[in-house]
Amino acid sequence: MKLPMSQIHTLHILNKTPEHPRFNECLAMMGPDDALVLTENGVTALWSTSKAALPKVFATKADLQARGLVAEANGATSVDYPELVDLTVQAKRVISW
């Protein structure tokens, strides 16, 4: 399992593209012990110019595949749905943006 063992404080689940106002709101709220999961159209952020600013980041495999994308090339870890559930369990808090 490639998921981190360290405790996640807040897990941010983001399904919006970088153009959506909530995308920046989410990044602005991220703390040092937080993790980000990109889902649905959120995964497009890995290929957008704003990706340099992304912290510890995961992306859902099915959404990547659907859009012909691979995560690893861009510094993100892809997760399947059971792994996504593990992340939500590990985190103290979850925000679904």
């Binding site: 807040t10 909530r22 103290k92 808090r93 979850v94 925000i95 679904s96």
Partner: peptide
């Protein structure tokens, strides 16, 4: 509201 968001275990934005 950002302080408010931090005080709940689960925060869910409507789509």
């Amino acid at each position: 509201s950002s302080g408010l968001l931090a005080s709940y275990t689960n925060v869910i934005f409507s789509n």
